[in-house]
Every structure is written in structure tokens, then in C-alpha cells.
């Protein structure tokens, strides 16, 4: 019974984390048809910047409180906006209209560059920013103690998810965005500034990626290579749910979260294996994902 409760809570926490680190990827793909490999770099940069910022602040003010959370948020926004603009205006706009796989390669190139940029800026050592994690004490669920920060991720991420969904489906710019998703050319002919929607979407996705990293900073040790691992995991999450679908990313996160947590409990050696087996099965049977819509062709 306790094991079951632990699996459920752990899965939820892990799924929330997966959702927040993947949602930007699926958002960008859904609107722009760009599968952004550099999402892994945004995550890592967000984590590095947040950890660095927290470390700097704590060094000067040992009993720093909730300011740390503000620092993390600012770090995510700064990284997302700066790097997002750089990627979208500097690279992507030169390859819009080319084959989608060419665009993937372009973002892969950006990813490679940013890997080394991070090493140059932050060096090879690890950054640890555990302080924010202890702001909320511990909470006991079914007799098991949990770190409050971890548990708070669940409602926070749920809020972000609902916010994104509402922004797309319940606001005027969101409705215009759906028009852009549906048919770029017609949207453009109707006077919608498609280029601006692309830039804004990419920035939002980039900020979300960096935010995922910033929120992860207290949970992990920030070292070179975290973006490399993250991006394949995020691919699995968004592909399982259906590339481009917000609801799908949530389902993908829950599935991967549950699968991986269960594996950790019962057969730890299958941890990574489970994730990619689910991804493979979904891709093989329903490539558009559990929530995607199959495309039909007219001749």
C-alpha cells in the first residue's frame, strides 16, 4: 500500500517535471513545425543561470528566502528571451520553408554550438543550488516524507499547463494562433502577421525550456551534458503524446513518469529502456501520437 502511494506521488512529481521541461518543445513544433533540438540547450542554460544566480545571492545573504525563486524566474526569462531571439532571428528564419528535417539539423547545429558555449561560460565544474528546495520544508504523504518543493511542482506545473491551454483556446491572440497553425498561407492572406507569431511562439517555448531548467536546478547537480540527456527524454514525452499537442504532452509526461517510476521501484535496470520502448510502440503504431491528428492527403 505504501509502495503504491509512493509510486503514485513519485510519478506525479516526475511527470510534472517532465511536462515542464517538454512543453516548450511541443508548443514550438505545433505552431512552427520546428523540432527544436536546441531545446536541450535552453534547459541546460536555464539550469546553469539559475544555479549560478542562486549561488551568487546565497553567498552574499545566507538566509535568503523566497527571493531565490524570483532569481530562478528571472534567470529563465532572461535566458529564454536572449537565446530564443538569437536562435529564431539568427538561424531559423534562414531555413523556414526548407524541409522539416533540414530545420531539425539546423537546430542540432545550434545545440552543438551552445554545448560548448556553456562550457566556456560556466566551466566544467558542477553547480549546486539546493537552497530553494528547502524553502517549503517537508510534507508527509501517506506516512512518507516528501520535500515540499517537489510536491509544489505538481500544482505549479498544472497551473502552467492550464494557462497555456487557456491562452491558446480562450484568448483572441490564441484563436489567431490556431489559424496560423491551421494554414499559414491563408492566415497570412487574412492579414495575420505570421512572422511575429513565430517569433513570439518561439520565445515562449524558449522561456518555458529555460524555466524547466531553472526549476530543475535545485533538484539536480548542474553539469555539462544535462541538455544532451534531457532532449531525448523530452522527445520521448512529446512524441508519445503527439508532437504539437499540449494535452498530449501532459499524457506523455504522465505515461513516461509512471513507467519510469515503476521501473525504478521494481526493475531499476529497465529505467531508460521503458521510456524508449513506449516511444517506439507509439511511433510504430500511431506515429502522430496518442493525441495527434493523422494527416490525410488529397490527390
Amino acid at each position: 500500500m505504501m509502495a503504491l502511494a509512493a509510486i503514485v506521488v513519485d510519478s506525479l512529481v516526475y511527470a510534472s517535471w517532465l511536462f515542464i521541461v517538454s512543453i516548450g518543445l511541443t508548443l514550438i513544433f505545433g505552431v512552427m513545425n520546428v523540432l527544436n533540438v536546441a531545446h536541450g540547450s535552453l534547459y541546460a542554460l536555464g539550469a546553469y543561470t539559475a544555479a549560478w544566480g542562486v549561488g551568487m545571492y546565497v553567498g552574499g545573504a545566507p538566509d535568503a528566502g523566497f527571493v531565490l525563486l524570483a532569481i530562478m524566474l528571472v534567470a529563465a526569462i532572461v535566458v529564454g528571451v536572449l537565446v530564443g531571439i538569437l536562435i529564431e532571428r539568427g538561424v531559423l528564419r534562414w531555413v523556414y520553408g526548407r524541409d522539416e528535417i533540414v530545420i531539425v539539423l539546423a537546430t542540432y547545429a545550434v545545440f552543438l554550438v551552445l554545448e560548448d558555449v556553456m562550457k566556456l561560460i560556466f566551466g566544467p565544474e558542477s553547480y549546486i543550488a539546493f537552497q530553494p528546495r528547502f524553502l517549503f520544508g517537508t510534507v508527509s504523504v501517506a506516512g512518507i516524507p516528501y520535500v515540499g518543493y517537489d510536491l509544489l511542482l505538481v500544482p505549479l506545473v498544472a497551473l502552467i499547463g492550464v494557462g497555456i491551454w487557456a491562452a491558446i483556446h480562450r484568448t483572441r491572440p490564441g484563436k489567431l494562433l490556431i489559424a496560423v497553425i491551421h494554414d499559414r498561407e491563408i492566415a497570412s492572406a487574412l492579414g495575420i502577421n505570421v512572422a511575429r507569431f513565430f517569433t513570439v511562439t518561439f520565445l515562449c517555448g524558449a522561456i518555458l525550456g529555460a524555466l524547466g531548467g531553472a526549476l530543475s536546478a535545485p533538484l539536480i547537480s548542474v553539469v555539462p551534458g544535462i541538455g544532451v540527456e534531457l532532449i531525448v527524454l523530452a522527445f520521448a514525452v512529446v512524441v508519445i503524446g503527439g508532437l504539437g499537442s499540449v494535452e498530449g504532452a501532459a499524457i506523455g509526461a504522465l505515461l513516461v513518469g509512471l513507467g519510469r517510476t515503476a521501473a525504478v521501484f521494481f526493475r531499476p535496470e529497465l529505467e531508460l529502456f521503458v521510456v524508449f520502448v513506449v516511444m517506439t510502440v507509439v511511433l510504430a503504431v500511431r506515429p502522430e501520437g496518442l493525441f495527434g491528428k493523422p494527416q490525410t492527403r488529397r490527390i
Binding site: 523540432l35 524541409d99 522539416e100 528535417i101 531539425v104 531525448v232 522527445f235 520521448a236 512524441v239 508532437l243 535496470e269 529497465l270 529505467e271 531508460l272 529502456f273 521510456v275 524508449f276 520502448v277 516511444m279 517506439t280 511511433l283 510504430a284 506515429p287
Partner: peptide, 25 residues
């Protein structure tokens, strides 16, 4: 039956499965 990014992703998933097996066996 897969093309484009689905072909790329499916093969990525295959290779990561093998990686998972090799690294843990």
C-alpha cells in the same frame, strides 16, 4: 512506412533502447 521526422525519431528511439540494454546488462 515512416518519413521525415518520424523516421528520424523512430530510429532514435530504437538506438536508445539498445543503449539502455547495453548499458544496464
Amino acid at each position: 512506412g515512416h518519413r521525415g521526422i518520424f523516421f528520424a525519431m523512430l530510429n532514435l528511439a530504437f538506438s536508445m533502447i539498445l543503449f539502455g540494454i547495453l548499458a544496464k546488462t
